[in-house]
């Protein structure tokens, strides 16, 4: 079956758990920016965790179903409606053939995940259905959805009325702390600038998308003086072009930090002063512009403990929705 896109929303794309293995050729992993919510959307409608869903950013789409299906919406607080009737988030519900799924305005978070029983059945490219728009790769024709698209959906089961307990639902906070490991080129900034970076309150800039989240509002960084190495470029924030880790924090010109996310540019010539820990990447995907944010330095042990906590929550989710 297909669903017809009556309205596309602001940036709605097909995503799954991602496409690892090609970063060395500049193809990023892509996949849901909030993978916790994406996983829940799949399990709630009886899909395997790695099925493809729709990721809707800031504004929901309007979708007409041509066959009966079970749907669940997780992540951002954006009330789904079936033919105008409100539905709960983090709860599976039925959509009948001919009915239209639409959304109320965004009340919290940034990205809603729309799980559909059977999963979005676009072709698998390099092992994934995720959309990498910059490279026109994967997803629906390599791009976000547009009005008039007919999106193929696989056949699946799924039952309405399945819900995830409150304790396992994750909403975005209003005052965010992103935990990070300092490193990579942290030594390029002065001690004072490094301390200031961590004590400043930053705000999410409007330039925040799947490639990366930009922040502004903190003090510009001052650099440790050096003669720039051969090939690095003249600005003190430049390095000889290298790889960028997912979650790495680059600060071009020392002014506005950018945290790279799942459609990351794989490398470039800006120094990085550290990397957001894997457990906090989901939260970035739910940040709205202007959200006050602090970067908090943690140890590797703390990063691994946070990672284990997230894995434990995912395990509980799987048990509950099995």
């Amino acid at each position: 079956m297909t669903i017809k896109v009556l309205e596309a929303g602001l940036a709605t794309s097909v995503q799954d758990q991602g496409r690892p293995g090609y970063y060395h050729l500049g193809i990023p992993v892509s996949g849901g920016m909030d993978l916790y919510a994406l996983t829940a959307a799949n399990l709630l409608v009886g899909n395997p965790a790695d099925a493809a869903v729709l990721e809707a950013t800031f504004l929901g789409p309007e979708l007409e179903f041509t066959k009966d299906a079970v749907v669940a919406v997780t992540g951002a607080e954006m009330t789904p409606r079936v033919d105008g009737v409100d539905q709960e988030t983090w709860l599976s519900f039925a959509v009948k053939a001919g009915q239209v799924l639409s959304f109320d305005f965004l009340k919290g978070g940034a990205r809603a995940y729309i799980g559909i029983s059977g999963g979005v059945d676009v072709p698998v490219v390099l092992g994934s259905r995720s959309t990498y728009a910059l490279g026109a790769l994967g997803g629906f024709d390599g791009r976000p959805l547009q009005k008039g698209d007919e999106v193929p959906i696989g056949s699946g089961g799924g039952t309405a009325g399945k819900s995830l307990s409150e304790a396992l639902r994750r909403g975005p906070g209003s005052n965010v702390e992103l935990r990070m490991l300092t490193g990579i080129y942290w030594h390029r900034v002065t001690d004072t600038a490094g301390a200031r970076f961590l004590s400043d309150t930053w705000k999410v800039a409007p330039e925040a998308d799947r490639i990366g989240y930009r922040f502004r509002g903190g003090e510009p960084l001052s650099f440790v003086e050096r003669e720039q190495p051969f090939g690095a470029g003249s600005d003190p924030s430049n390095i000889v072009d290298g790889c960028y880790p997912y979650g790495s924090i680059q600060v071009p010109g020392g002014t506005e930090p950018i945290v790279l996310h799942r459609d990351a540019v794989s490398g470039g010539g800006y120094f990085m002063l550290g990397t957001v820990i894997s457990a906090d990447m989901d939260f970035i995907g739910q940040l709205q512009p202007h959200t006050p944010t602090k970067f908090v330095s943690v140890t590797m042990e703390e990063a691994l403990a946070a990672r284990a906590d997230r894995s434990a929550m995912l395990a509980k989710m799987r048990d509950e929705l099995a």
Partner: peptide
């Protein structure tokens, strides 16, 4: 060598290009 978060190791072979 430097850890890039808990999932990456970044290795700078040299500061300058050659």
């Amino acid at each position: 060598y430097s850890f890039g978060g808990d999932e990456h190791i970044f290795c700078e072979v040299d500061e300058g290009m050659s």
